[in-house]
């Protein structure tokens, strides 16, 4: 990972922390964003503003099973990111299997003590968008809480809910839904 990308990550984490403080001045600050007037194909300035961050995030968010990693370290990272935990319908309770996977993840997190992770909560397509955003948040939070309980520092574990917006399987069967009710673990950087 190049220094530039590390710098971008650091900046991003800094931003996240700043916002997470809920400081009114921060949330007040108007985004220097002008949404393009609705003529088709207009690129806005904002779209170009942080493209690197966006691309990295998307790759991480999709689990990027495409193993770029050549060394052993890269492989454990990929394994860490590719192992999701799964939930029952309309539930954010951790199953026994989920707890086992989370316990395994602490091994990697303890041996890579500077790595930060974003836990992404996801839902299946059933249920409605707004409720699923809240449910996804609770799934990510449940995983975060358990990792903290197992001794991982809270500061290393960000959460985000994608609700039903990022299904890994686009099918409409119970098997597809089961795959989509998950928390995914994306490595943010060190």
């Amino acid at each position: 990972m190049s220094r530039t990308i590390r710098f971008v990550y650091t900046l991003m984490i800094l931003c996240t922390v700043l916002f997470s403080l809920g400081c009114p001045k921060q949330s007040l600050e108007p985004v220097a964003t002008e949404i393009a007037k609705p003529q088709p194909q207009t690129q806005t300035e904002t779209t170009k503003e942080q493209p690197d961050m966006k691309m990295e995030t998307l790759e991480a968010g999709q689990g990027a099973g495409t193993t770029k990693g050549k060394g052993a370290l890269e492989q454990v990272r990929v394994d860490f990111e590719n192992t999701d935990i799964f939930f029952e319908y309309d539930s954010f309770n951790l199953t026994i299997e989920a707890k086992k996977i989370l316990a395994e993840k602490t091994g990697f997190l303890n041996s890579h003590s500077t790595i930060k992770v974003r836990i992404e909560g996801n839902c299946d397509e059933r249920g409605t968008p707004e409720y699923n955003l809240a449910l996804g948040e609770r799934r990510a939070k449940a995983a975060q809480d358990y990792l903290v309980f197992l001794g991982i520092a809270l500061e290393r574990l960000a959460t985000v809910s994608y609700g039903e917006e990022k299904p890994i399987d686009g099918g409409h069967t119970e098997a597809a839904w089961a795959k989509n009710r998950r928390a995914h673990f994306a490595i943010l950087g060190e």
Partner: peptide
């Protein structure tokens, strides 16, 4: 009218519905 966008809540966790 202006198509300007302002962030009104970017607190930790979800800011939804």
């Amino acid at each position: 009218a202006s198509y300007n966008v302002r962030s009104i809540s970017a607190r930790k966790g979800i800011n939804t519905s």
